[in-house]
Amino acid sequence: MNCLECRELLQQRLDGDAALLSESAKSHLAACPTCRSLFASADVLLKGLAAKPAITIPASLTDRLVTFAVSDREKRRQRSQARWTAIIGLAASVLLMVVAAQVITRPGKTPDQAASLPPIAQNQPKEKETPAPMPIAPRAEEARQAVAGLTERLAEETREQARLLLSVATPPNLAAIDPIPNMDFDPIEPAAETLFETGRQVKEGFEPVTRTARQAFGFLAREFAVLDRPQQ
C-alpha cells in the first residue's frame, strides 16, 4: 500500500466505514509517519465530533415560525388580491374606453335609415370608382390666382399700415392747434416725411415680388395649357 491508497482508506474511515485495517495498511502506517499522524488526527476528529454537545432549539421558535409564515401568507394574499383588483379595474376601463370610442366614431344611422337602404349586393363584386382626372391648366390658373391674391393682400396691408402711420403723423386738425410762438418750422414734418418715404419704399419693394409672381404663374399656366391639349 502506498500513501495515496492510505489516504483513500482514511477517507473511508471518516465516512464511517470502521472496518479493521488490513495487514498491508498496518505495515504502511508503521513505516510512514505522515500517514500514521493523519490517522491519529482522524481519530481525534471523530472523538471531537462525537463530543460536541447537542443543539437545543429555542422553545418559542416553532410558534414564531408558524406565526410568521401564516402572517406572511396573509399579507401576500392581500397584496395579490389588491393587484388583481387593480388589473381587473384597469382592464374594464380600457374596454369601456374602446367601446365608447367605437360608438362615438361610428357614422350615425338610425334604424329607419338603415332599413330604407337598398339591400347590399353581397355576392357582386363592387366596382372601383376612380375619380376623373382634372386638367392641369385650370388647377395652375387657380394656384396662380391664389398666390397673386395672397401677394396682393400682403402688399395692400402694408400700404394700409403706411397710410395709417401717415394719418397719425399728420392729423387733419393739426392746423387748428395754435402754433408755438417763436417757432418758424413744423416739428411733425420730418417724421411725416420719413413715414411717407417708408410707405412708398415698401410699396415699391413689394411691386417686383408681385410682378414676378404674376409672371411666373402666367408662364406656368401657358405651359400647362400646352400639356392639356389633346394629343393628335
Binding site: 471518516l14 491519529a40 488526527s41 481525534v44
Partner: peptide, 23 residues
C-alpha cells in the same frame, strides 16, 4: 475539508504522537 482540518489539528498540537499500531 477533512485534510485541512486534520492538518490544522496537527499544527495545533491536538494529535498525540502515535507509536503503536492503529486498530
Amino acid at each position: 475539508a477533512r485534510l485541512e482540518i486534520l492538518e490544522r489539528l496537527q499544527s495545533r498540537g491536538m494529535v498525540p504522537e502515535v507509536e503503536h499500531e492503529l486498530p
